[in-house]
Amino acid sequence: MTRIWLLITGVLAIIVFATSLLVVIPNTMIGQVRVPSQLAPYTGQQARGRAVYVAQGCVYCHSQQVRDPVYTSDKDRGWGPRATVPSDYVYDKPHQLGTMRTGPDLINIGVRQPSDQWHHTHLFNPRSLMPWSIMPAFPYLYDVRDSSSLKPGEVFYSVAGGKLPTGKVIVPTADADALVAYLKSLKRTYPVPTGNEPAARSIGGRSEQTMP
């Protein structure tokens, strides 16, 4: 080979071809996804919780997808009633599909664990609930306080499993409250959208409905 331009052309052709096939075509051709009527956009607090989820890097241990029950046991493990579909993720930006399950899948954690108490004590120290858990503790999301110092109306939780000295309780920070609100919102149990829903939009995410 003696011609650089030939080499450069070939190299560019390869990347243009691949980008067309895997980025441009999906964007233009199959980009029409129905917004499921049962799926509400994230509220401000849930969106903040999602940002906390992203910033702590939860995705490195938790996926958010249920694969096809025909050839995986995701459904049988109780992670969701059906495989998830593109429209389940219209409000997700950035996506958090994940490639690792050091911990269980979370796309339906809001169904499995609806309790604030459970989430807060679990996040404060997972081993307070499951001694064998290897999930990191997130004590920095909580204020540890004397139960005597609580003001009336303040929300607090006690922690089981000997993870706190007696007389101490945890008070969630705003971040912790937001994170739990987000986790509780993770529910993709409605039936797969049939296509009769009103609003069609591009999964390209250029609509204002995406998470702020």
Binding site: P26, D92, H95, G205, M211
Partner: peptide, 8 residues
């Protein structure tokens, strides 16, 4: 600009 599964 990408979001959802397309961002994945």
């Amino acid at each position: 600009t990408f979001s959802g599964v397309e961002s994945a």
